[in-house]
Every structure is written in structure tokens, then in C-alpha cells.
Write a protein that binds this DNA or RNA. Structure first.
Length: 258
DNA sequence: ATGGTAGCGCTGCTA
């Protein structure tokens, strides 16, 4: 089972690149973020023709998340259970059961700058995610949370821990919020395979950051124990960040024997 | 050298 996640930064602008990558990487499940589409504009037929069932949760213009699966897709749920209407409109969370795994695609709020209301909303959103997991999932089952967390878990996941993004993405409260989710019963799958630093998944478009190696690892696949112990391989596909009209994120995938 | 690019959509916001 190959499970992938990719912040595509507009599916309309990136559809050709996504189709190309599906043919190349052959994921069984792909979670996408920042589709920037309303549900009515989601190109479900394009993906169906490639053998994927789909679920999309989007309001157009900003955010938007999707799940593609060629191993079945049932029980899609948009947003958190019991979530406020305002948060559902933000369209940052979508779950479905695919091939016996409860899969969620997440687009964690950016937070902009520490100390702002956006930063506080990011921390509140992460706590809401943790509560949702605790109330609706069992860590002894197969659960995968895939997406753009907008948090670099460790200093080795940042090109320069001191100058990163006005201290968001690396601040202690953000990292603690992520740790709290892990402590519920999830593992950062990529770190079961690699210990190295500077293995990034996102690079700012500006100032040649990709070619200068200034990035962060903020795209994660968190898995419960039943999946972690069957993990075989993981990769951030940096080649997908190159070439014509790339997203600013590279896709991450994991291979699990299930 | 305190900048820069990309996407949406038409003005400035978001990242």
C-alpha cells in the first residue's frame, strides 16, 4: 500500500503535474491540500478515469483538501465531528476509509506570525484535531493523518531554525501541539526511515530557495502503531518540485505492507 | 540584498 500526501497549491494550476505524478509514483491513496477549488469544480472524472475514487472538501479560492483512492473509499466526512460552521467553511480536514485505513487529509492553518490571532487560531485548530482523534479514533486501529502541518517537528527539519518564518513553524507551542497528537498514538512515518537533517518537503518560491536548499519539512504522514510496524519505505520526491510550474511543496509517500 | 514568487482574480490577500 502506497500512501502519499502533496500540497499542490491549486489543483487547477497543477492538474497536469498531478496526473503525471500519479502515473509515475502509482500511489494507492493520495491526500492533497490547497486544491483552492469549490467541490463543484473538483475534477473527479479525470481521477476516476485513472482508477481513483475521490472525496473533496473545498470552498474555492483558499484551502481545500482531497483524498484519492484506488483501494476503495467509503464514509467520507468533511471537517471535524461537531465542528463549528466557520471551521467547516475553512475546509482544512477530510477523512475517509480506504483499504481498511482511516485516512485524513489535513491542511493546518499557517499561523502567519507568532503572537497574532492567526497563530492562536493555529494552536486551537491543532488542539481540535487532537480532540477529534481522541474522541473518534482508536490508536490500536489503522489510522493515517496525512498533510501539510505547517510545523517543522525538529530543528533538523529547518534550513535555519533561528530565521525561519518569524518563528512560526518552529515555535515550542506549535511543536508541543504536534507532540500531543503523536502522544495520543501516532508516529511520524518519515522519521522511522530517515535520521538525516535537511530533508525538506517545502521551499518558498522566492529568492531561489529551492536551489539554495532553504526549506522545511512540514508535510507529514502520521500513522498508528499497526501501520508503523509494517512500514517498508518512505520518500520525499524532490524531483516533483523541479521543472515547469511546480508546487512549492514536494509529495511525500510511504509504503506499508497491509 | 531586509528583497524575492506564485495563485486567485482584478484588488490585495494568502502563503
Amino acid at each position: 500500500m502506497r500512501i502519499a500526501t502533496w500540497n499542490v497549491n491549486s489543483l487547477k494550476a497543477r492538474l497536469g503535474r498531478v496526473e503525471e505524478w500519479l502515473a509515475y509514483a502509482q500511489p494507492d491513496i493520495l491526500c492533497m491540500q490547497e486544491t483552492k477549488l469549490a467541490d463543484a469544480a473538483f475534477p473527479a472524472l479525470t481521477f476516476h478515469a485513472l482508477g481513483y475514487e475521490t472525496a473533496h472538501h473545498g470552498n474555492g479560492r483558499w484551502n481545500g483538501v482531497a483524498i484519492l483512492s484506488r483501494v476503495g473509499l467509503t464514509d467520507p466526512v468533511a471537517g471535524f465531528s461537531g465542528e463549528r460552521e466557520d471551521d467547516i467553511v475553512e475546509s482544512r480536514f477530510l477523512s475517509a476509509t480506504c483499504g481498511g485505513i482511516r485516512v485524513s487529509t489535513v491542511y493546518v492553518p499557517n499561523g502567519r506570525a507568532a503572537g497574532t490571532e492567526h497563530y492562536e487560531a493555529k494552536l486551537a485548530w491543532l488542539e481540535q484535531l487532537r480532540t477529534h482523534l481522541a474522541e473518534s479514533c482508536d490508536p490500536e486501529t489503522k489510522v493515517a493523518i496525512c498533510g501539510d502541518f505547517n510545523i517543522a517537528p525538529d530543528d533538523r527539519d529547518v534550513w535555519d531554525a533561528t530565521s525561519a518564518h518569524g518563528a512560526t513553524h518552529v515555535s515550542e507551542p506549535e511543536r508541543k501541539a504536534l507532540t500531543a497528537i503523536k502522544e495520543w498514538g501516532m508516529t511520524d512515518a518519515f522519521r522511522l526511515v530517515y535520521d538525516d537533517d535537511r530533508l525538506f518537503s517545502w521551499w518558498d518560491y522566492r529568492a531561489g530557495d529551492f536551489h539554495q536548499g532553504r526549506g522545511m519539512r512540514i508535510d507529514l504522514i502520521l500513522v498508528t502503531k499497526m501501520l508503523a510496524e509494517r512500514l517498508r519505505f518512505a520518500l520525499i520526491d524532490r524531483n516533483a518540485r523541479k521543472g515547469k510550474l511546480p508546487s512549492d511543496h514536494a509529495p511525500l509517500f510511504v509504503d506499508i505492507d497491509v
